[in-house]
């Protein structure tokens, strides 16, 4: 299509089109804001509820504002003590930090072995490890429960760390295989010629080059472990090793006579670490998503 771009009428038309495309952005802003308000209603409910006493909750409408902010502290104390959330959050924190840390580290080592060294049929080794994620988690439940029971790993802190580490290895491996593979060959070849050990090449050449990906992967796995209910509900039933999500569920479930205000406060408490991580390390979370695809 041939156009005379100096034609003032044409330029005027372009400008009009440009303005027309600007205008709906305000309309879209209004629609988006409305949607957002509707979307955030459960959060509104969450934030008014944590400031109510049980009696107040049961007697007022769920949308009413609380009478005062004071009951919040009492709700926190109740959730913390009744549900055993204190112990459970320490447990989950250790599972999540260690599990995610170990898994990312071991996956990085494996990715290094797969991409930077001369391993025959590296692809087959990769597929072998990656096969661990092909199956839905339900496939592991019965064997893990029985196997843990037989080996004494059930209801043990170490057993939980091991199982979480194993589950969290394949995905980081998939990602790191890609990012390590993309690092220029010359870097480690040069280091090797200078006599650096493979461990040194790995630890001080390759790992620093993939720091962003490693942090993002750690965050993803941390969140997964912290949020897990399925594995911990089966493998860690005793109060000493119970995870935060199991404690939360126990508070909501059977035999509990706790008001909704306490249970909702507990669910807020159980989300604090992941939400904080998200707020402060959002950049890494978002880049983690790109890794995922």
């Amino acid at each position: 299509m041939a156009v005379d771009i100096s034609d003032p009428a044409f330029l005027e038309g372009l400008k009009r089109k440009e303005r027309a495309r600007q205008r709906p952005s305000w309309l879209r802003l209004a629609i988006a804001s409305l949607l957002l308000v509707a979307y955030l209603v459960p959060f509104y409910y969450l934030f008014v509820t944590i400031f109510k006493t049980t009696d107040e909750y049961l007697r007022s409408s769920v949308l009413d504002l609380p009478n005062s902010l004071a009951p919040f502290w009492d709700n926190v104390v109740q959730a913390w003590t009744l549900g055993g959330m204190g112990r459970a959050s320490i447990n989950s924190m250790s599972y999540a930090v260690l599990g995610a840390g170990l898994a990312t580290a071991l996956a990085a080592a494996a990715a290094y072995g797969l991409t930077r060294l001369k391993l025959r049929s590296a692809n087959a080794w990769f597929m072998l490890i990656f096969a661990g994620t092909l199956f839905p988690f339900q496939m592991f439940l019965v064997p893990l429960f029985f196997g843990f029971q037989r080996t004494g790993l059930i209801n043990s802190w170490g057993g939980m760390v091991l199982v979480y580490t194993a589950i969290c290895i394949p995905f980081p491996l998939l990602v790191l295989r890609g990012s390590f593979g993309a690092i220029a060959r010359e870097i480690d070849e040069a280091a090797r010629i200078e006599g650096a050990s493979e461990w040194r090449v790995f630890a001080s050449m390759i790992v620093p080059n993939a720091k962003g990906a490693l942090i993002a992967l750690f965050l993803i796995q941390f969140t997964f472990i912290w949020n897990d209910l399925l594995f911990s509900s089966i493998l860690a039933g005793s109060p000493e090793v119970r995870s935060i999500m199991v404690a939360l569920q126990a508070l909501q479930g059977t035999y509990s006579s706790t008001g909704p205000n306490v249970v909702v406060t507990a669910s807020l408490l159980s989300s604090v670490p992941t939400v904080l991580l998200f707020i402060f390390l959002r950049r890494y979370f978002m880049s983690g998503l790109q890794l995922g695809t």
């Binding site: 459960p42 409910y45 949020n227 999500m245 569920q249 507990a266 159980s270």
Partner: peptide
């Protein structure tokens, strides 16, 4: 966590 979301 889905468990927290479900509870709310």
């Amino acid at each position: 966590a889905p468990a927290a979301v479900g509870t709310i």
